[in-house]
């Protein structure tokens, strides 16, 4: 785990979307890096034998253009790392292609699964990220895969905690935080701590989010995600359509005070929500995150000085 303290501190960033390109230009002083999902740069094509993901030349060209202006981290959507019958190999092929074109500081994926192969051989997609049960069986499936991903690109791999809405999965023998800590113990990966996701789970399943944060292995948090959303039928939705709610800002402040290896804070917004949050709203979120980031860096530097003295 030696490298977590050596990862470059990137600062505050935003997820890369076509619709946000004007913001990259107009608010570049607030944006230190961009988080690119290769999935949005590709199309799914039938090659005669199977479906393959192929980078769309124009979309790639535009992303590479912005990759020359900002440091890049990769955030995958479609790996389906937790599928028991095997992850989505076409996503790995896509990431290989993207890696040949664009170097990145780290790459990451969501903890969960999207697709599965039914008993009749049909590959189906749930269309929504689904949770894994917090069991040893699930750990045994995903931990070797995580270590493969850590070794594949000579760059750190991070796993993100996710939101889900399905109560009490069967045979759980630990809770979400213990499960995440077990993954971190058994593998080389770092963590994207998505504070909004944890906030949603805490509201939806009724646990104390600060107690959960205190139990998490915070030294492995490399990136923090912040976002906002809406609630429907009393369920807090992970939909990235709003500004960051106040409790999530409070969680961010607390986490920055207690996690020493954070290298980045990303404000995530759905492309379609630009009309809701608007450019000024995005700038306000980035600005507030920048203030917290500056305090974090200052206090980290002070700690180093104290140690040297």
């Amino acid at each position: 785990m030696k490298y977590f303290s050596n990862i470059r501190k990137l600062g505050v960033g935003i997820n890369y979307q076509n619709a946000f390109i004007p913001i990259l230009e107009s608010h570049k002083y607030l944006i230190d890096f961009i988080e690119i999902s290769p999935d949005i740069l590709c199309e799914e094509r039938w090659n005669g034998k199977s479906r393959v993901l192929e980078l769309h030349p124009k979309r790639l060209e535009t992303a590479l253009h912005w990759g020359r202006k900002f440091p890049v981290v990769v955030h995958g959507l479609g790996l389906s790392i937790g599928t028991a019958s095997g992850w989505n190999q076409s996503y790995i092929d896509l990431l290989d292609s993207f890696h040949r074109a664009q170097k990145f500081h780290w790459h990451s994926e969501h903890l969960g699964f999207l697709q599965t192969k039914l008993n009749d051989g049909q590959l189906v997609n749930a269309g929504v990220q689904l949770p894994l049960p917090f069991t040893n069986e699930a750990l045994d499936i995903i931990c070797p895969r995580i270590n493969q991903l850590c070794a594949r690109y000579n760059t750190p791999f991070l796993l993100e905690n996710t939101t889900h809405y399905l109560p009490g999965m069967p045979n759980d023998n630990m809770d979400e935080i213990d499960f995440l800590n077990q993954i971190l113990q058994r593998t080389e990966c770092g963590l994207i701590l998505d504070l909004y996701n944890l906030y949603c789970n805490a509201l939806n399943f009724g646990f104390d989010v600060m107690e959960a944060l205190r139990r998490l292995e915070l030294s492995r948090v490399v990136e923090i995600h912040i976002a906002g959303g809406v609630s429907q039928e009393d369920i807090q939705m992970d939909i990235h359509s709003e500004i960051v709610p106040e409790p999530v800002w409070e969680m961010l402040e607390w986490t920055l005070d207690n996690a020493s290896n954070v290298s980045a804070i990303t404000y995530e917004l759905l492309e379609q929500a630009l009309n809701i949050v608007k450019e000024e709203g995005i700038a306000a979120q980035l600005n507030r995150a920048q203030q917290l980031w500056k305090n974090y860096i200052k206090s980290n530097q002070q700690e180093v000085l104290d140690v040297v003295a």
Binding site: A84, F113, T116, G127, L130
Partner: peptide, 12 residues
Amino acid sequence: LHNLQNALVEKI
């Protein structure tokens, strides 16, 4: 887990 995932996805 494979069976549970298949059953859950099919249910959805």
